[in-house]
Amino acid sequence: MTVYSKITGTGSYLPANRVTNDQLAAQLAEQGVETSDDWIVSRSGISCRHYAAADENSSDLAVHAARKAIEAAGLQAADIELVIVASSTPDFHGSFPSTACIVQQKLGLANNSAAFDVQAVCSGFVYAVSTADAFIRAGVYKRVLVIGSEVFSRILDFTDRTTCVLFGDGAGAVVLEASDEPGILATKLHADGSHAGILSIPGNLAGGAIAGSGFLYMDGPAVFKLAVTVLEEVAKEALEHANMQPADVDWLIPHQANLRIMKGTAKKLGLPMEKMVVTVDQHGNTSAASIPLALDAAVRDGRVKKGDNVLMEGVGGGFTWGAILARM
C-alpha cells in the first residue's frame, strides 16, 4: 500500500503586542526616521504587525501554535514522533541547542521524539514540510509536527525604514500524518547561493561577539525581481509534477512578504485574487511563520475545507524557494 502524508491539524499564534503603522511611525519619528501608514501600505500592503514581548522567544511562540495544531489533529503531544522547526531567529546564538529541542522539552516530549531545525529563511516552512513528507512516505515516522516560528523584531534595524516596517513576529504549525489518501501531492525545492548577498544578516560570531552587523539587510528591488520570477516557475513545477493545472487550485497561499509580489504571482498563474489567502496586511512578513499562519487562518474561518487543493510557496534568503501542493 502506498503511504502518503496528510495535513491533519493546523495552529497559529501571534504575540499580544499589535503595532499599527501609525504606532510604528510615531516610534520611528522619535529616532528621526520618517514614515507613514500611506507609505508603508503603498509599498507592501502591510497595515500592522505583532511584536513578541521581551521574555518571549521563538520556542514560546512555537509551543502555542503547536498545541493548537495537535489539538486540531485530535492527537496528544505524546503522539508526535518528530518535531521540525523552521526559524531564522532561534532561541540561541549559533542555533544550538536547536529551537526544536527546546519546543520538544516544553511540550513534554523529552526523549520521546526526534527534533531538529531547518533554516531556509522565508522558505523554511516549505522546506520543513517537504522534509516531513519524505520521512512519512519512507515509513520512518507516522506523525510529524512542523512549525514555522520567528521573532524578527529582534534583528530589525529601526533606523532603516525600508526593512523595519515590513516584518513581524508569529508562529504557525501543522501536523502531518501517514495516510492512505493523497495529501501532499507535490513538493519542489530550489536554492541559488549566488544571490546570498541580497537578503542576509551580514555578521558572524567571533570571540563571543558579533563581528559585522547583526541586523537584517535586504536589497529590496533585487529580492522583488527574483521573487516574482521564481515563485511563478516553482508553482508551475509543483502543478506539473502532480499532473494538475492552475485551474485545479482552490487556494493559493504564498509567503506573505509583500502584497505586490503576491498579486503578481497570482496574476502570472492566472488565478483570481479571490483564491489567494492574504494575511500580510495584519501580520507583516513573519518569514518562516507566514505560510502556516495564513493556512491556519483560512482553515479556521472556513475558507479552506477538506478536499481543497492548496498551493503554498515561499521564497527567502539563501536564496531559497519552493512550493507545496497539498490536498487538505
Rank of each mutant, 00 (worst) to 15 (best):
V121C: 08
E71T: 15
D60S: 12
L199G: 02
R161Q: 10
E313H: 04
T163F: 08
G172R: 10
S59Q: 13
A242M: 03
S95V: 15
F152E: 00
E232V: 02
R300W: 05
P15R: 09
L28M: 01
N243Y: 06
A86T: 12
T20M: 08
A128R: 07
T162Q: 11
F215K: 13
G264F: 07
G108E: 05
D219N: 13
R154Y: 00
V121F: 03
A128E: 05
M328N: 07
D22Q: 13
R67Q: 15
S36D: 13
G203D: 08
E313Y: 05
C164Y: 06
G108F: 01
D281V: 00
H255L: 01
M262E: 05
P272V: 03
T265Q: 09
F96H: 11
G183E: 01
D219M: 00
E177M: 04
A54T: 15
A86P: 13
R137C: 07
I70K: 13
G193R: 09
I324F: 03
A16E: 15
A235Q: 06
N21M: 10
G94P: 11
I324P: 05
G183R: 01
E30L: 15
G32P: 05
E81P: 12
V165E: 02
V304K: 02
G74A: 10
A196W: 12
V121E: 04
I210T: 13
C48M: 13
V146L: 08
R300Y: 06
Q256L: 05
K267I: 03
T20Q: 07
F215M: 08
R303L: 12
E81D: 09
K306C: 06
A69T: 11
D79R: 10
S36V: 13
L311S: 15
S44A: 15
A73F: 06
H255G: 02
A138D: 06
G302K: 07
L311R: 14
D157G: 09
A191S: 15
L14E: 08
R154G: 04
G168K: 12
G203A: 10
G170Y: 01
Q119M: 11
Q76R: 15
I184W: 00
G170T: 07
G220K: 04
D192M: 09
G124A: 10
R300V: 14
A134E: 10
S149T: 03
G214Q: 08
G208A: 12
A62F: 00
L176Y: 03
A134Y: 05
A288I: 11
T229G: 07
G108K: 02
A72M: 14
E56V: 15
W321G: 01
V121T: 12
G183D: 05
V121K: 06
A69S: 12
T286S: 14
N243E: 00
A227N: 03
A288N: 12
G212E: 03
V85D: 10
G94N: 13
G148I: 06
T163M: 05
D219W: 00
S5Q: 09
K236Q: 11
P15N: 08
V140E: 00
G318Q: 00
V129M: 13
D192F: 03
I7R: 07
L199T: 01
F92N: 14
S287W: 02
C101L: 13
